[in-house]
Simulated scan of single mutants.
Amino acid sequence: MKYFLTMLLVSFSIAITAQTKKIPHEEAVKTIDGTLTRMLQLLSVEKGNAIDTKSLKELFLPNVTFSVRASDEKYPNPFETVNLEDFLESLNDNYYKQGYEEKELGKVVNEFNGIANVFQSFIGSDSEGNTEKGINSYQLVYLKDRWWIANMIWTMETDEVKIPKKYFHENSKKKQ
């Protein structure tokens, strides 16, 4: 077991060192707020443009997972998880090329000793004027003088289940 943990840490350190070399937005990743603001900026794209997945990839640990909890149990997969490459590939969909914008409505940050959990409420708007609100839940880790997104899970608001007021700016408590 000790050997496994040592190898895991060595592999992890090598992967982080390799990713650290090409940080295009070094100042953004110095804070949790900057990292998440950059995330939303990169997910938002004007019609005819593609999401900059190369820059987006640099916000994440190599073994990050992305999970979505469907708001309707009628979906065949009400909970789905993908890896980094599959997540980035999904962003090449024509839906995003038609234009998409995601804005933060508020967040609650809990941080201790280089780890953080953030609940971020957001509103997403597509090119046809459709909007949806949801919650992004991030787990972040502070390594090599910057924040990395380690995991992300999100779900959407429904008519039956509204986002609690504590996740909106006027009620959020930033603890950075």
Results as ranks from 00 to 15, higher is better:
residue 121 S to I: 07
residue 87 F to G: 06
residue 57 K to M: 08
residue 58 E to I: 01
residue 56 L to F: 07
residue 98 Q to M: 10
residue 136 N to D: 13
residue 84 L to P: 06
residue 78 P to S: 11
residue 95 Y to L: 07
residue 127 S to R: 05
residue 124 G to V: 00
residue 140 L to K: 03
residue 107 K to L: 12
residue 90 S to T: 11
residue 57 K to F: 05
residue 140 L to C: 05
residue 138 Y to M: 02
residue 63 N to S: 14
residue 123 I to M: 14
residue 111 E to T: 12
residue 81 T to M: 09
residue 91 L to K: 04
residue 125 S to L: 06
residue 92 N to P: 06
residue 63 N to I: 07
residue 126 D to L: 06
residue 145 D to L: 00
residue 135 I to P: 02
residue 103 K to V: 08
residue 98 Q to I: 00
residue 134 G to I: 00
residue 83 N to K: 11
residue 82 V to K: 12
residue 122 F to G: 04
residue 73 E to H: 10
residue 146 R to Y: 10
residue 55 S to H: 07
residue 146 R to E: 02
residue 120 Q to D: 10
residue 86 D to Y: 07
residue 55 S to D: 15
residue 94 N to S: 14
residue 104 E to A: 14
residue 102 E to V: 10
residue 91 L to W: 02
residue 116 A to E: 05
residue 128 E to G: 12
residue 68 V to G: 00
residue 92 N to K: 15
residue 83 N to C: 08
residue 62 P to Y: 11
residue 105 L to P: 03
residue 129 G to F: 12
residue 120 Q to S: 15
residue 117 N to A: 08
residue 95 Y to H: 13
residue 84 L to M: 09
residue 112 F to P: 02
residue 86 D to L: 08
residue 82 V to Y: 03
residue 56 L to G: 06
residue 128 E to D: 14
residue 64 V to W: 04
residue 112 F to R: 15
residue 143 L to R: 14
residue 132 E to D: 11
residue 126 D to S: 09
residue 86 D to W: 01
residue 57 K to E: 15
residue 119 F to C: 02
residue 110 N to Q: 11
residue 117 N to R: 12
residue 60 F to R: 06
residue 74 K to W: 00
residue 132 E to R: 15
residue 67 S to Y: 03
residue 56 L to E: 02
residue 85 E to K: 13
residue 144 K to V: 09
